[in-house]
């Protein structure tokens, strides 16, 4: 594992902690897209099917369990927690995310490394992760104002993707056989989706102003 990969995993972990902190400390999930959180739950469940078949390291196993557990916990809170669910922006979070699930699954059926149950589900999870942030970005854009913790959540998620790209570049030059083009292409698409958000985050940070996204 190289430093970029580790930094990516850590920013991913921090983003989840920021999200949990927001929900538990403020007992509110306003500004958070349930659609995006459900997509992440599906992404992790589909990708980590190998939990039962391959052991890579304690680190990998623990992180996988944390990602699955935290995404399901957030979905549970937003749907069922007596207090938290009241603040859910139901009327704004209307992205039809099941189309993304269907589209990504179809793509995975045709574009994969090998036609097997695990490889198809792995490719599906990679494609779905690339677009899973869309309902969240659209929700933020529609509501305009972004509270600090929600802004930081999305910022850390974007940073995680950026570090993974550096990780692939590093691996490309240091490992003999590193070709994971499905991850790399999807990862580039995913990171590009954050470009707009990064831009406005930077502007608001520079002006020391509250983050606002243009409608």
């Amino acid at each position: 594992m190289n430093i970029f990969r580790f930094a990516g995993d850590m920013t991913h972990l921090i983003s989840i902690l920021v999200l949990l902190l927001k929900v538990y400390a403020t007992k509110s999930c306003s500004g958070i897209s349930l659609k995006t959180q459900e997509l992440y739950g599906i992404v992790f469940l589909a990708r980590y099917l190998d939990l039962f078949t391959d052991f890579i390291s304690v680190y990998n196993t623990v992180m996988k369990l944390v990602f699955i557990g935290s995404s399901l916990a957030i979905v549970w809170c937003m749907r069922f927690h007596r207090v938290v669910k009241r603040s859910y922006d139901r009327d704004v979070d209307t992205f039809r995310h099941y189309f993304l699930v269907g589209g990504c699954f179809l793509l995975a059926l045709f574009v994969h490394e090998k036609f097997s149950f695990r490889e198809v589900f792995w490719a599906f999870s990679i494609y779905l992760e690339a677009v899973a942030i869309l309902p969240q970005l659209i929700l933020l854009q529609r509501s305009g104002n972004v509270d600090n913790l929600t802004g930081q959540y999305v910022l850390f998620l974007g940073a995680y993707r950026g570090f993974y790209i550096l990780n692939w570049i590093y691996r490309y030059f240091t490992e003999d056989q590193f070709s994971r083009w499905i991850s790399c292409v999807s990862g580039l698409v995913q990171t590009a989706l954050y470009a707009d958000f990064f831009y406005y985050y930077f502007i608001s940070w520079k002006n020391n102003a509250k983050l606002k996204l243009p409608a």
């Binding site: 991913h12 990708r47 190998d50 391959d54 890579i56 990998n60 792995w122 993974y164 990780n167």
Partner: peptide, 10 residues
């Protein structure tokens, strides 16, 4: 080498 590529990333 296993038949399927072991995915070592998260």
């Amino acid at each position: 080498v296993s038949e399927e590529d072991v995915k070592d990333e998260l």
